[in-house]
Design a protein around this nucleic acid. Sequence first.
DNA 1: CCCTTGACCAAAC
DNA 2: GGTTTGGCCAAGG
Length: 113
Amino acid sequence: MKTNKYNLSISSNMFQEKVLELTKKIPKGKVTTYKEIAKKLKSKAYRAVGTALRNNKTPIIIPCHRVVNSNGSVGSYKGVENSKEKIKLLRKEGVKVVNGKLDLEEYLFLDLS
DNA sequence: CCCTTGACCAAAC
DNA sequence: GGTTTGGCCAAGG
């Protein structure tokens, strides 16, 4: 979907908005994956989810550090892979991170309604 | 418009 | 266990 006859974007930003909304719902001490967020949006735009979070201007309000890769590695934060800051935040919330990875079986939060 | 770039994923080496 | 490869799709140039 691109533009309408007035050359205005139709559904741009909606994707990002939804991503941020879902991210806000992740409880402290839990995480979710880029894939699960995309799935909730009925999309396979895994990468676009990352793009949306990168665009996030309010990292405190939007806890984007709780979004990780589906293989259990923490992924990136503020454009930096395996960000020390991201790991720190997660640990502070009670998530065990070992060697840049965590146990999804234990921490994955799926009920994003 | 077309082309490139990613905070990714799954499968295959 | 790890690295590479092709695919994915929204955004920006």
